[in-house]
Nucleic acid binder design. Sequence first.
DNA 1: TAGATTGTTAATCGATTAACAATC
DNA 2: TAGATTGTTAATCGATTAACAATC
Lengths: 217, 217
Amino acid sequence: MSARRFPEMDRREISQAVIRRLPRYLRYVNMLLAGGVERVSSGGLAEGLGLTASQIRQDLNCFGGFGQQGYGYSTEKLSASISAILGIELGYRAVLIGVGNLGRALLGKFSFGRSGLTIIGAFDIVPELSDVGGVRVYTLDKLSAFLTEHAPEAAVLTLPADKALDMAVRLRDGGVRAIWNFTSTDLQGLGLVVEDVLLSDSLMTLCYRLSQRQPHG
Amino acid sequence: MSARRFPEMDRREISQAVIRRLPRYLRYVNMLLAGGVERVSSGGLAEGLGLTASQIRQDLNCFGGFGQQGYGYSTEKLSASISAILGIELGYRAVLIGVGNLGRALLGKFSFGRSGLTIIGAFDIVPELSDVGGVRVYTLDKLSAFLTEHAPEAAVLTLPADKALDMAVRLRDGGVRAIWNFTSTDLQGLGLVVEDVLLSDSLMTLCYRLSQRQPHG
DNA sequence: TAGATTGTTAATCGATTAACAATC
DNA sequence: TAGATTGTTAATCGATTAACAATC
């Protein structure tokens, strides 16, 4: 619950809304950084992101002052600070369970490393391949031994929904503390940090917005 | 902008927060329905979803009264009403662009139909297969003719990020009005309805929450 | 220094919760 | 009818925006 690295945070709980904006800030600042931009003001960020300068300053100040009056924010410092806040450079390791098309897509194309997780092993009942995207694929009966040996902090769940709950319990009992859950199965209440990717919810909100529009409106 | 099917909605704009909760409500009510439950109170929904009864009644009443005093809500009616609000039974059609692992995963395992979209064709530069999950895969040079002939309302973008913007413009010019965007490319400002699936943002928030926890805390 | 821009407090706005009369 | 539960208004809470003194 506490925040050793950021004592300022203990004052009041950071709201979920703020946390959800941090990755956007990071992405934008990294883009500036890649383009050789050395400094940016809250106004500049606001314009690029479609937010208010005030909100951005408030958000960043939840974690302490990264800026400098009269100057703005150093893109390099800001990028490093947000990365540190999010904890994406702590080197968390994860296993991926379920090497179907989705699991394979994540292993192959998605760069976990830059977002805070290193996949150290993938598991499936019947692995068709022994290696996907540079990650070794094991049969599921090797999981327990693997958890004991490597003690990964997290797991990515891309297996069939009806096997998700049992697997989550098994992973938790093996020491895993967080789950990136693609299965649409409710894994709340197990004492795990659970981040759901609810694709059908996302799609439904798209439909809603589409239905609110006149043709080409 | 207007809402022909739900004139109540014109009074005030429905907040994004409400819309994002509707799919959760629908999922839960459909689960009850599948289990043979015929009625549910706002209190029952609240308990099942971890929200307050008050909030649920407020949310639903944005769209008119679906309940009955002293009784609660008919699960069947409620399911049908939320489906109608979200527009997922309007039969929207979509093309999917980019049949890599992610595209294939979506075509094969994800049930678009139940979430409001029917995929009527998939496209890739070099399709390895001519048919995935019952959907015909075409080469990309057939896209324009396909758009003209079938006029799909939406598109799913699962192609490489550096080709996303050009493709979005091409789709828009071909009559597509909404994009389910998996590419992490900013497609705002093109006059399209865009729903982003930002996997790295999701993963970063997982890391944040993990970093806030003591081991097994 | 003067200008710019932050950090931070105060004001506003919107969303959630509480309360209760209406009514099935 | 009496009990239950909605629909809806009022109160509270939190998040966003505005303002400005501090300061680089």
